[in-house]
Amino acid sequence: MIHWLKPPKSSTIAEYVECYWMIEKTSEFDSNNSPKLNPDPSAHLILSPSYQTYSFDIEGNIIKGHGCHWIYPHHKTFQLDHSKPFIHVGIKFRVGALYSIELHNYSHPTLDRVEEVTPDIILGVDDISWLIELAKNDPEQCCNQLDDLLFPWIKKSKQDRHSELVRKSLQLLDTATISELGDKLFCSQRTLERSFSRVTGFSLKQCQSMNKLEAMLEYLYLRNSNDINWVEVALMFGFSDQPHLIRYLKSQLGLTPGSYVKERGLTIDVYGGISSL
């Protein structure tokens, strides 16, 4: 398994793209065949060979396709089919970035969807086999090429008052309460919530909850089972008590803390996050 994650080289691209990443599974590699993507407010563009198939199970709704595809922001957990060898090069966009980029001319983000796409629409090239080979052999040069390919598309981006307000709120979301954000940004709570929903598709509370979940699962993933004190974890991540944490995990992942310890390798975000493969 090859897995790397790197930020864009260009500061212009970095305003809209959080990172590039690559994972590959070969026939010799034994790994979890059904990992899950946690709820994520970011969109990912997945670059894959045209012959390569993909399958997502979204609460019993199976979405299948082949080649390159979008994974749009989602508040549901996606289960993947990694039973066959594959390779993906991914572009993880910043929260709300697609609102500012001239894409499909939509006024409200698409959520909880996977959509097949041809690479020429975004990158201006039909054949990406050379880019995938470059990702395998020279990640730094691959990032340079992705910057160059994305630039003509991203330079068309436009900021408006809604996207500017959301950008500022995202910088404060993990350090301030939602009720404080309006005062800090000199606007009403209603104005802030409406702009946030318009740009991201989520409420402030939903996005804050997803950020908390990602931070907590990363914390747990890096610790041995015997070292996890669930009472301490609950307090550390802002839950009133352990039962509150249990209810939260069950609602987000369908797992209790005990079940999560056994299956945590199955629930870590493997696209643009921590690899569980």
Rank of each mutant, 00 (worst) to 15 (best):
H104R: 14
V89L: 15
L103M: 13
H108G: 05
E115H: 09
K84M: 11
Y99H: 08
K92L: 08
V95Q: 05
R113P: 00
G90A: 02
V114H: 00
F86S: 07
V114G: 05
F86I: 06
S107H: 10
L98F: 05
R113I: 04
Y106A: 12
L103N: 13
T110V: 14
I87P: 03
G90R: 01
F86V: 09
R94I: 07
D112E: 10
V117R: 08
L111N: 00
S83N: 10
L103A: 13
A97N: 04
A97Y: 00
P109K: 09
I87A: 10
N105P: 10
F86W: 04
R113C: 06
E116D: 12
I87F: 06
L111Y: 00
R94A: 05
I87C: 09
V95S: 07
L111D: 00
S100A: 09
V117D: 04
K92E: 02
G96D: 06
L103V: 15
S83W: 07
D112Y: 06
L103P: 08
S107T: 11
E115S: 11
F93V: 08
P85R: 05
I87N: 04
E116H: 10
F93Q: 06
E115W: 07
E115K: 10
V95Y: 05
L103R: 10
V117T: 14
A97H: 04
V114E: 01
E102K: 13
H104S: 15
V89P: 03
N105K: 13
Y106F: 15
K84I: 13
D112A: 10
G96M: 08
V89N: 07
H88Q: 12
F93G: 06
K92T: 09
E102G: 11
K92N: 02
S83Y: 08
A97R: 02
K92G: 01
I87L: 12
V114F: 01
S83V: 11
